[in-house]
Simulated assay, not measured.
Amino acid sequence: NDTREARRAVVDAMPLLIEASNVVVVSVDRGNSAPRDNVADVERFLARHGVKARSEVLDARGSEQADLLLRIGHEIAADLIVLGGYGHSRVREMTFGGVTRSVLRSGSLHRFISN
């Protein structure tokens, strides 16, 4: 569940997020989920902990999810990308790749990946 993974990552990164001056919650719309509901849920969770955040929903049709996340990270000059890692089994990630592996291979931004 994308929301559960996101929430776990947010909880793990909360000490950093509380100190951040700008937090952007990003969800990737793959055409098969409710990304606006997911980002709204994470925003409410952050607000309950005193973190003011805004959200972005990116259309992933025709694009790689990791590329979209890294691109918006560069566009907003992010200091850190926080994400839940290995949402699929490790075997599937190792065989077919995945967002986690792609983001890890990119050395362009600091990453906080919660498993």
Results as ranks from 00 to 15, higher is better:
Leu17Arg: 00
Gln65Thr: 04
Ser55Gln: 04
Arg71Glu: 15
Asp29His: 03
Val57Pro: 02
Glu75Gly: 09
Arg71Leu: 11
Ala66Pro: 01
Val91Asp: 08
Glu64Ser: 13
Arg54Tyr: 05
Phe45Ser: 03
Val26Ser: 01
Arg48Tyr: 00
Val11Trp: 04
His88Val: 13
Ser102Ile: 02
Arg111His: 12
Met94Thr: 05
Asn38His: 05
Thr3Ala: 12
Arg48Asn: 00
Glu75Trp: 15
Gly98Ala: 13
Met94Asp: 02
Val103Tyr: 01
Ala60Lys: 09
Ala34His: 08
Ser33Phe: 05
Ser102Lys: 10
Arg8Asp: 09
Gly50Trp: 04
Leu80Asn: 03
Leu16Trp: 08
Met14Gly: 05
Ile72Ser: 06
Gly73Trp: 06
Ala6Ile: 05
Val91Met: 14
Lys52Met: 14
Val51Asp: 02
Arg71Cys: 06
Val23Tyr: 04
Phe112Cys: 02
Leu17Glu: 00
Gly98Arg: 01
Gly62Ser: 03
Val10Lys: 00
Leu104Phe: 13
Gly73Leu: 01
Thr95Pro: 00
Leu58Phe: 05
Leu68His: 03
Asp79Tyr: 06
His110Arg: 15
Arg54Pro: 06
His88Gln: 13
Val24Lys: 14
Arg101Tyr: 03
Leu83Gln: 03
Arg54Leu: 08
Arg92Pro: 03
Arg92Met: 09
Asp29Gly: 04
Gln65Ala: 03
Val57Trp: 06
Val11Leu: 07
Ser89Phe: 08
Ser114Pro: 05
Val91Lys: 08
Asp67Ser: 06
Val82Glu: 02
Val103Pro: 01
Ala6Asp: 05
Glu64Ile: 11
Glu56Ser: 11
Ser108Glu: 14
Ala40Met: 11
Met94Gly: 06
Arg105Ala: 07
Ala40Asp: 13
Ile81Lys: 00
Pro35Tyr: 03
Ser106Ala: 15
Arg111Glu: 08
Val23Leu: 02
Asp67Pro: 00
His88Tyr: 11
Asn1Val: 07
Gln65Asp: 01
Arg48Met: 00
Leu16Asp: 02
Leu58Gly: 08
Ser55Ile: 01
Phe96Glu: 14
Val25Thr: 02
Val24Arg: 13
Leu80Arg: 02
Val57Tyr: 05
Glu75Cys: 12
Val103His: 01
Asn38Gly: 09
Arg90Thr: 11
Asp67Lys: 08
Glu5Thr: 04
Gly50Pro: 04
Asp12Asn: 14
Asn1Thr: 10
Ile76Gln: 15
Glu56Gln: 12
Ile113Val: 15
Val23Ile: 04
Arg30Gly: 04
Ala40His: 11
Arg48Cys: 00
